[in-house]
């Protein structure tokens, strides 16, 4: 297994009193080329789980358990080792494309920076590769957009830049934390398609975090349902959505609009997102 998380617990220290636990013992594993969907409402610990996986938990957080990435425990790695790992082996896409890019830096440079941080390639080569990546995520007029600043782009385009950065070094694992939440519905579908295609093409394992079952149903092979830091259930996406074994999953499903729920019964999960 490429990624194995065993009994991960995360707590946040308070100034006084005991720590606040936000993740209470989550376990799952993920192989190459697989897509795991993590679904749950706000505050269920999804984002903390993803930050722990890339080793970016805030200093006030304390994590126990094991996060084995290709057999090595991320929780015991030094900052130096983590810096080498982040970006090159594990990529991450964040929720807010409007704020996730440096406003004072051209997007081309932000992509090229990711490449230059991990290899000794020249500036010219990095820029050429950045251009190729922008084209890969289907940014129109990519050559000109290389010299654009984030504020000159739409939300969807910025999120594509975010994907280009995360995929620039062809990581083994990509974590996408609510990548489409801040976007228009039509743009959501495009972004999900790009993600799905690239993950298949490059053989990358993907963790897709969302509060939206429609999004999860669209591309996840397996699904983990979380509630208040606990695992509610885990299994093949189709099974979880069609025959939920836990009450909370049933509640999540019943919270979907009726048409989408009807779609779950008759349509293949991969086309579900369109009807949400």
């Amino acid at each position: 297994m490429m990624l194995e998380i065993k009994d991960l617990k995360v707590g946040f220290q308070n100034e006084v009193g005991p720590a606040t636990d936000v993740v209470h013992g989550i376990s799952f594993s993920l192989g190459k080329g697989e897509t795991l969907g993590i679904v749950g409402e706000s505050g269920s610990g999804k984002s903390v789980l993803s930050l722990a996986t890339i080793g970016l938990l805030p200093k006030t957080a304390k994590a126990t358990g094991e996060i084995l990435f290709n057999g090595e425990d991320i929780l015991t790695m030094s900052e130096r080792e983590l810096c080498k790992l982040r970006g090159s082996r594990i990529g991450m896409i964040f929720q807010e494309p409007m704020t996730a890019l440096n406003p004072a830096m051209k997007v081309g440079s932000q992509i090229a920076e990711a490449l230059r941080l991990h290899s000794n390639i020249s500036r010219a080569d990095a820029n050429a590769e950045a251009l190729r990546l922008l084209e890969m995520v289907k940014i129109p007029d990519a050559k000109r957009k290389m010299h654009s600043y984030p504020h000159e782009m739409s939300g969807g385009q910025r999120q594509r830049v975010g994907i280009a950065i995360a995929l620039s070094l062809k990581p083994d694992l990509l974590i996408a934390d609510e990548p489409t939440t801040a976007l228009d519905v039509t743009v959501q579908a495009e972004i999900l398609d790009i993600l799905d295609d690239l993950v298949t093409e490059l053989g990358i394992a993907l963790i897709l975090i969302s509060h939206d079952l429609g999004v999860i149903a669209r591309i996840a092979d397996r699904t983990l349902v979380m509630y208040r830091g606990n695992e509610m259930e885990q299994g093949e996406t189709e099974r979880v959505l069609r025959q939920p074994s836990h009450d909370y999953t049933r509640k999540l499903l019943s919270a979907l609009p009726r048409r989408a729920r009807a779609g779950l019964d008759v349509m293949a999960p991969t086309t579900l997102g369109d009807s949400v």
Binding site: K84, A114, L117
Partner: peptide
């Protein structure tokens, strides 16, 4: 947020500090 993005790219704390 963009500082977290930079760190997720693999930027060291000092690189993120002076560059971003």
């Amino acid at each position: 947020d963009f500082v977290r993005t930079a760190r997720a790219k693999g930027a060291t704390p000092s690189h993120a500090l002076w560059r971003h």
